[in-house]
Nucleic acid binder design. Structure first.
Lengths: 257, 257
DNA sequence: CCAAAAGTGTTGTTTTTACACCCATGA
DNA sequence: TCATGGGTGTAAAAACAACACTTTTGG
């Protein structure tokens, strides 16, 4: 069968080139229709979803590997990425049918064994512009697409846990770094930005207070344009002042002490 | 020579038991004489200091490995540990004299090669009660001891970078989690706790405002005791309300949004 | 013309900062 | 007794939370 050939080929060609024991998984967030979305793969021969992930080549940093993986999955070159945790439970692949599956579908045992080894997984979260992503499945999956956060349950391996941890990390980021440049198109309206924050935090915010606070960071530029063609009053467009945004990313947004 | 035998023996006995490509390094902070200290090893045959570190056994989580390493280095069983970053630059061991050194001092090339492989290092920071630590060197070092933060320069490999990142991570922790239970003895005075915060933040704080803020977290218990025998007015002793402290650790201390 | 969303300011409350005096102790 | 550090309160400023009316637009 075709799908199985893919699998066989994949490990034959590349399995041995990767560093052993190390993998990475990416929780890719996008924002669309006023909702946070996460990019997931539908695994072949398995009724489960998985985070896009991959392995580390000998000459790569983890960040470079993550960028490579995400380029393959999304077509994007420039992605905001953040390492957030290493998942190292020796049992994290237990209950994993993948290795068994692989053999069952004709994998060479030696190659299948590569998958059977223990892997640590370095978790990354990524924030991307939904509209620029062109999702492509990998060799182990037969589709790749966006899902609502509440649809991201029952993932493969410990990916539920990785996903939850990523969500937590993104929420934490809001408190010391700006978010939005990577998730929104270049031009956006204030309500859109607010929806983004509300979705990430999963709670409603007051329009006026939100606006004041965001402005106080000094990272927004108001454009001389409005979004037209939509119902109701035309909202103004904004863009991030990239210079100040980057500065805020590095320095953090005030602190407690 | 004795030291070289140690090295030979070490890899012979254990080198192959560890997972390849993965190491961990710990930045252990203690507090003494109103100063933050960091635990460092003096490397054998090398005029450089290094962070205590180690490798991962097949059945361990990273956290368990870090605890094992720190038990060996400090004698402590209970240590506050936090993963904070993975250092994965393929060149991070370049300029490393270690592998060359090992061969030069009679290492079996095959064994020395184990050290020559590429390692990722998972960085942990640890907060410990200075007075309970009994520092012990490892097989690659000839002493282990506390250093002031400004003495932690010119470390081996990329340990300078790891150290700086750890410091940054601890500072960040102050803004969303309490710190102190792990660094101070059971009973301590308010000024001692304040010194601790001041040292970590590297800036002076107002006594009264500090006290108010710390109290507002509701994690302190004031004891019916005073520290006697010291000059000046006897300060009251406090201890952490462990239950509430743990809760604050988990939940975080308020947030921005 | 009306329903729905956008824009904008003010006020009361809470939190943060800045600051000064008295007290206890060992030297 | 005095020098040193510990203990405590208050007032001004800043940040935050709550809240309502007017404007614009497409349907």
């Amino acid at each position: 069968m075709e799908a199985e050939d893919d699998l066989l080929q994949w490990t034959r060609k590349e399995g041995n080139e990767y560093l052993s024991h190390i993998s990475l998984d990416c929780v890719v967030f996008g924002f669309h229709a006023n909702q946070l979305k996460v990019l997931l793969l539908k695994m072949k021969h398995l009724d489960q979803l998985a985070l896009p992930g991959g392995f580390l080549l000998p000459e790569e940093t983890l960040e470079e590997a993550a960028i490579r993986v995400l380029r393959e999955r999304t077509g994007l070159e420039d992605i905001f990425l953040q390492q957030f945790h290493v998942f190292s439970d020796p049992g994290r692949a237990e209950g994993n049918k993948r290795c068994e599956e692989l053999k069952a579908i004709g994998f060479h045992p030696e190659k299948a064994a590569w998958f059977a080894q223990r892997f640590l997984s370095v978790g990354f979260y990524a924030l991307v512009d939904f509209s620029l992503v062109d999702p492509k499945p990998d060799a182990l999956s037969d589709s790749c697409g966006w899902h609502n956060l509440d649809g991201a349950l029952g993932l493969v391996l410990d990916h539920d846990q990785i996903f939850q941890a990523a969500l937590h990390a993104v929420r934490a980021q809001l408190n010391y770094q700006p978010v939005g440049y990577n998730l929104l198109p270049k031009k956006f309206t204030m309500p859109e930005l607010q929806r983004l924050y509300e979705t990430i935090l999963d709670k409603p915010l007051d329009r006026r207070n939100f606006q004041r606070k965001i402005f106080s960071y000094g990272i927004l530029r108001r454009l001389d344009e409005k979004r037209t063609g939509v119902a109701h009053k035309a909202p103004s467009l904004y863009s991030f002042d990239l210079r100040k945004y980057q500065k805020a990313l590095k320095q953090g947004l005030e602190g407690g002490w």
